[in-house]
Each structure stands twice: as structure tokens, then as C-alpha cells.
């Protein structure tokens, strides 16, 4: 249990998707103009990461990895399909995004209409594929660790985009040099936020 909490907190603050690895920057920069829309996108990312990371974990451990097919029989023990990782992961992500979209539409039409346009965009958000690839690289031991990593990364991304959106709403009233307005200042603020987040480095639970 402690280990799970450790992974969760670590993936929110220390290995933050935006500030430590810059994943999902495109939508982070494009959608962070207002707080409301960024909250919507943030929730959608938590949702999709929470699903895709564990599913890809199962895929990696029972189908793709070296010797992962041994449950089919001893003659499959030497099969190594890891070169197919990218294409399988991205297919799972695209399918999951489609599925999540349909589920939300059925269960909660209000949430669907508020997330609507962002959901399909998530399929090409690097944070989602990045989450699966980091999961693979870090060799998590079991599926609950993968779930807590996925949710933690999603929450970290959510915090980052809501934070920058709040700052951007305020900064509209400040006197920023004209060539720096918009994109330039957003980059620099993100950098400063990243420096602040670096102070979490080295925290062990």
C-alpha cells in the first residue's frame, strides 16, 4: 500500500508529465487560455491515462514482452514481439479514447458536452502514449502499481494545466513586452513553474 502511495505522489510532483518530461505540451499550450476548458481537458486526461496505462501494462506483460506468451504453452516462451509495442500501444489508446467517448456520452451527456471536442484530441496527446512508454521502461511490478502511476500522472498533468490557465487569465492585465505576449511568456512561466516543482525532487515517502 505504501509503495502504491509512493508511486502516486511521485508521479504527480516529482516526475510531473509537464514540468519534468514536457509531455502533452501541445494541448497544454493550446487549451490553457481559460480555466474552465483546461479543467475539462485535465479530467479527460486523468480518465484516459487511468484506463490506458493498466491496459497497456497487461498487453506488455501477457502478449508483447519477451517470453510473455509462455502462458499459451512452452513453445511460445522464446517469442519476443516487443518491436510491435508502438503500434499496439497507439491502437489501444485510439480505441480506448473512442470507447471512453461513447461511455461518457451514454452515462453523462452533460460531462460529454463539456468535454466533447477535447476527447478525440487526447488520442494524439503525447502524455498518454508517454505514460504507457514510461510504464514499460520503468518495469512496474503489478497492475495496481500501473494504475496508481497512470492516475498520478493524470493528476499531475491536471494540476499543471489548471495552474498555467489561472496564471494566463491574470497575466492578460499585465504589461508584457509585445513580442513576448501569448506564446513566449507562457513558455517562460512554465519554465519558472518547473523550477518551483523541482523543489519536490528527492522527496521519498
Amino acid at each position: 500500500m505504501e509503495e502504491l502511495l509512493n508511486i502516486f505522489v511521485k508521479s504527480i510532483f516529482i516526475d510531473n508529465m509537464i514540468f519534468a518530461y514536457f509531455l502533452g505540451m501541445c494541448s497544454y499550450l493550446a487549451v490553457s487560455r481559460t480555466v474552465n476548458t483546461s479543467v475539462g481537458l485535465g479530467f479527460a486526461v486523468i480518465f484516459v491515462l487511468g484506463f490506458t496505462v493498466p491496459i497497456n501494462f497487461l498487453l506488455e506483460n501477457y502478449i508483447l514482452g519477451r517470453g510473455a506468451l509462455s502462458w499459451l504453452g512452452p513453445q511460445f516462451a522464446a517469442v519476443d514481439l516487443s518491436f510491435l509495442t508502438f503500434i499496439m500501444f497507439i491502437a489501444i489508446i485510439a480505441a480506448m479514447v473512442q470507447l471512453v467517448e461513447m461511455i461518457i456520452e451514454k452515462l453523462s451527456p452533460t460531462l460529454y458536452s463539456s468535454l466533447g471536442i477535447f476527447l478525440p484530441l487526447i488520442a494524439v496527446n503525447c502524455a498518454i502514449l508517454g505514460g504507457s512508454l514510461f510504464m514499460q521502461e520503468r518495469n512496474y511490478a503489478n497492475i495496481s502499481e500501473a494504475i496508481s502511476f497512470g492516475l498520478g500522472s493524470g493528476v499531475g498533468w491536471f494540476l499543471a494545466i489548471v495552474g498555467i490557465a489561472a496564471i494566463r487569465e491574470k497575466i492578460r492585465y499585465s504589461n508584457v513586452p509585445a513580442p513576448l505576449r501569448g506564446l513566449g511568456i507562457t513558455f517562460i512561466i512554465t519554465g519558472l513553474m518547473g523550477i518551483a516543482f523541482m523543489s519536490f525532487m528527492g522527496i521519498e515517502l
Binding site: 514540468f19 518530461y21 505576449r181 506564446l183 513558455f187 517562460i188 519554465g191
Partner: peptide, 26 residues
């Protein structure tokens, strides 16, 4: 460290937009 990459890109954007004023975000 990671944050300086963001600030470097920010400065590159600044210089480019200073030279080509049509790109400025209004």
C-alpha cells in the same frame, strides 16, 4: 535541467517576434 529548455524556447520566440512584428500575438 528541464525548466531551462522552456525558457530558452521562450527567448528564441521573443527574438523571432521582435524581428518579425507580424507574428506578434495580439
Amino acid at each position: 535541467l528541464p525548466p531551462m529548455a522552456l525558457i530558452t524556447v521562450g527567448i528564441i520566440i521573443w527574438v523571432q517576434r521582435y524581428k518579425d512584428r507580424r507574428l506578434i500575438d495580439i
